[in-house]
Amino acid sequence: MDEPEQNVVTNTQLPKSQVEMAPDAAALDAPGATIFDAKKVSCYYGSFRAVTDVSLSIYEHEITAFIGPSGCGKTTVLRTLNRMNDLVPGAHIDGDVYYRGESLYAKDVSPIAVRRRIGMVFQKPNPFPKSIYDNVAYGPRINGIHNKAKLNEIVERSLRGAALWDEVKDRLGKSGLGLSGGQAQRLCIARTLAVEPDVVLMDEPCSALDPIATAAIEDLMREIKSRYTIVIVTHNMQQATRVSDRTAFYSVLRNEESDTRTGVLVEYGRTQQIFEDPHDDRTRAYVTGRMG
């Protein structure tokens, strides 16, 4: 599928050498398969329109960051990508989200099946009050896997995938609630990976973590992106620049007459372009910290 127009870097301001110097620019300009294709998505909570007309494509094996001020709808959009908003009474969307070419919101699509393929990690680490082992084995068991050897293998692979195995392998039977914040978040990532998802959505996964735990999660994201596609909502712009391939900047549009506000997608492009040469003044104001 062709890249949407807003992804095309028409960076006439930069000298040619700057563009040539970016080593992975060519690779990024030719993205992998389109995983998500949001088409004119508006999200409503009851009659409140939280987000208006978002269209963007998200590509395989990339990390896509959503940034923007509070109330800009970035989390809402993230939650439309695995139908998590279905759990909110009164929430609905206009437009459509295509996942690997198929409508996520078609009548015959089961939201449970969607969430199995498209996992989510939340802001606050939320291990179940169970053992570390059972936290990770929870999803596979629900999916009908009860073979002990098979479960052992999944638990180890997932914990290794989440870079937590070495720290917990001797205490798999201990409660997941006894872990540090960073470990608990990696446990939640392991729990997400255990059901072998295609996509991992992360909603401010590091906002409750210290810098070292944050660095561990960021390393992990870079490590697993060759196997998964990751979308992350973050308030930390440095995090977006460190880990993401593309960045979508959302903002709040105020309608003075009706005294309402709604989130809009302002600009979407390669992360380097967004932070080096944002095309929209609102993006520039936000990334340089000028906007209030």
Partner: peptide, 9 residues
């Protein structure tokens, strides 16, 4: 100041 975009350039 961790400048980016226009500031850093």
């Amino acid at each position: 100041q961790a400048p980016v975009a226009s500031d850093l350039r």
